[in-house]
Write a protein that binds this DNA or RNA. Structure first.
Lengths: 267, 267
DNA sequence: TTCATAGATTGATCGTGGTCAAGTATAGCA
DNA sequence: TGCTATACTTGACCACGATCAATCTATGAA
């Protein structure tokens, strides 16, 4: 049963492809040769580029590499070479401390760019792991920098993306330092919701790409707490959750959860 | 009594200037006309630029504007125009929520660039407030972008700075989500220490530019907790603190505090 | 000097969420 | 189909740090 549109191809709910689909995917490989025809061109880097300059981006991109669930796109402390745009699937980035402890720093969905935190220093600043069967486009950084030097619009867009990344991270820090478990989880659900909407998928009915464990780690909580909050929300009729399938029944209530904090805390 | 070297001029411990010094500062104003002669040129943007291209940076920079303690360099939700390099003094950036609650997102010391989180969107993403008498150089963003398009080295440096900012913020998130009060404060002290060292000032003997309140807010703690940890460290002979004057007596012990966490937490 | 205000410290109490432990459900695979 | 490993849920208990409250210390003004 095929239920979900990801990038340009239909994939199964669990992110897998049937053999037939996999073959089909390779058969249509000429299709992946062009940012022009990519369904994400209005979210990804092409969004910043004029029609007639698009081939210059296509010249430097290595498209359509597919990873299976759990595979690493790159690893912390290996030489930094490229940024990656998610084409379909989803990616988790995390920092591993010397002692092996993990801190999840972000989740990336189709159209989003991974690796912007690694532009300083010789090596990748984090590890990027694929949460489900995922296809990415690779942008070698030296070529990308060269191109942004020639295309002011693209350079401007890169600045915007990186700036947005800083803001996201500040928001996360704020969430971690000031908000309760319920507020953090409500915020994450709403963030995912709006990102699904951007991709013209249902903002109220989606399946979480990440495990409870990853959510907990990302939000600075224990897995048990995440579990408890999910069931609490469910009992309150705010969401319905079975495993990774989530339905937002009362979006306004979720928004209230995140804002209530601000109200009571403020002034 | 003049005790501290800040940028190119000696200032008082509290960041103020005597009238004589203020006059002197304005008298030497031709000095501030050149990035070339700035003592921070090896930390700030000039670091990325060849000698003979430096005048192009000087053409776009508006140098040497001075703010008194507590004044705002820019405010959240006002139109974004420029990034600012701290020349002397220090700056605190924070996000103000709808309800008026503050979240401190960073402290900036001489040679560091403020405003990189505002490059996306129309308005500044945060408010920048001066913690002591502070001098800054202003880089209008449109001119800066134009220049980075022409100077690949400068563009590269901007990418590095923004990437570093993302990493810093990730580190902060990690600190907030995983570390105890003691670990967070030890980490902040060490961060400040290394940033003083960069400027060739004493890494073990400095005065905190920010109030306990700001430290608490930044680290996601209550003021009382910050106070308690300071006295605990003092009782253990790790630091000596009287008000904002801090002396790091045992840097290794501080490093141990931050790493112990990783040890016991890992694997 | 004295007073006023803000900042910093210290103590006592309480609550959120972590930890430990057990149990249930689900996915992957032969 | 069953087995196994992993993911998820639920419960009981406890600790770190928040909160409230009081005191102490600076700084600046009249």
């Amino acid at each position: 049963m095929i239920t979900r549109l990801c990038g340009l191809i239909w994939i199964n709910p669990d992110g897998s492809l049937t053999m037939a689909q996999a073959i089909q995917l390779h058969q249509v490989s000429p299709l992946k040769a062009s940012c022009n025809q990519c369904s994400l061109s209005n979210l990804c880097l092409p969004l910043a580029i004029e029609e007639n300059d698009l081939d210059r981006l296509e010249d430097i991109v290595q498209q359509g590499r597919i990873y299976n669930r759990g595979e690493h796109i790159f690893d912390q402390s290996t030489p930094f070479k490229s940024c990656f745009a998610v084409k379909s699937g989803s990616v988790k980035t995390s920092i591993i401390t010397e002692s092996g402890e993990e801190q999840v720093t972000g989740f990336f969905m189709p159209g989003e760019l991974v690796g912007l935190d690694s532009l300083s220093g010789e090596n990748y600043a984090c590890t990027a792991k694929v949460l489900e069967r995922t296809s990415v486009c690779e942008f070698p950084i030296d070529k990308l920098e060269e191109l942004t030097g020639k295309l002011p619009e693209l350079q401007h867009h890169m600045y915007r993306l990186m700036s947005q990344e800083i803001q996201n991270s500040h928001q996360l820090a704020m969430l971690l330092s000031k908000n309760t478990a319920e507020e953090r989880i409500a915020a994450l659900l709403l963030s995912l919701s709006s990102r699904f909407r951007r991709r013209r998928m249902s903002p109220t009915n989606f399946s979480l790409p990440m495990a409870r464990n990853d959510i907990a780690n990302f939000l600075g909580l224990a897995v048990e707490t995440v579990s408890r909050v999910f069931t609490r929300f469910q009992n309150q009729g705010i969401i319905r959750a079975r495993g990774r399938e989530v339905e937002l029944l009362d979006v306004e209530a979720l928004q209230l959860v995140t804002r209530d904090f601000a109200r009571q805390g403020g002034q």
